[in-house]
Design a protein around this nucleic acid. Sequence first.
DNA 1: TAAGATTGATGTTTCAATCTTT
DNA 2: AAAGATTGAAACATCAATCTTA
Lengths: 154, 154
Amino acid sequence: MIDKPTELTVDVWIALLRAQRVALQAIEADLKSAGVPTLSWYDVLIELRRSKGDGMRPFELEQALLLAQHNVSRLIDRMVRAGYVRREACTDDGRGQKIHLTESGQEMQRRMWLVYRSSIQAHIGERLGNEDMARMLVTGLRSIAGKPKGVTEL
Amino acid sequence: MIDKPTELTVDVWIALLRAQRVALQAIEADLKSAGVPTLSWYDVLIELRRSKGDGMRPFELEQALLLAQHNVSRLIDRMVRAGYVRREACTDDGRGQKIHLTESGQEMQRRMWLVYRSSIQAHIGERLGNEDMARMLVTGLRSIAGKPKGVTEL
DNA sequence: TAAGATTGATGTTTCAATCTTT
DNA sequence: AAAGATTGAAACATCAATCTTA
């Protein structure tokens, strides 16, 4: 059969699934025990911060975060209710809107980053050497992920 | 600060998140368009199949699949309703039970594997060379994931 | 008391349909 | 009609509490 994967390929996929799951659970647990929101909120906060005060359209967030439109819509709902972002009318496209960070959202992003970065170091950095990381990136993970559509370059 | 990650470490984490998300979404989409259940069902089916008819305790599934106990409980509920697994009383431990594959569950596992393996090949195998895969595994992904607790060896 | 497992309430994601503007 | 975005209903996940047996 032409599209049957080798054992090695299957092992890589299983390991990829597992590594991400283990690391993600550990990192989410760290965030939770620090009393801050989850990673999906962080993703929105950091994307908006990178937009430098211009705000972002929901569909831009959608592409950057690999989320479905209705999920972005509801994620923003919750973050508006929590006071971290606000919606603004979009001047050049009547259908759309612009999402902006609030002061409180900026603060939360900074606060989360302090927790998040320790966690990345603990669960990723301390387990891998520089050589290994560099190789995983250039010929491995990025080939699987493809090129991001949004503004954010990896 | 002692636990601040390097840029490279952060890049690896972002790439890991992204690669898994992209591949997972692609694979789930393939399963859906083939009209079969999602990957979490497959994970249960294949674990049970590996147990060779002995069945598995819910807490064993929990460890093998990295799921919380209540999630396993409800996942099994749904799969029982769909007729793919059945619960049996556990002879040596009155608190527990044994989960077994049904005939129909075995069939579905086989059917899903045909779809799943093409999908793994398309989204992982065709994007990576053998050398790269081998390196990602031994010095990369597996160091992040740690050792699995359950029966299943990667 | 602790381990194995389930349940009610609540929060989040998904599906399909809808609404508005281009 | 297509793009951007939202919404109701249903499926699924999570939290805290509970139940049973070891």
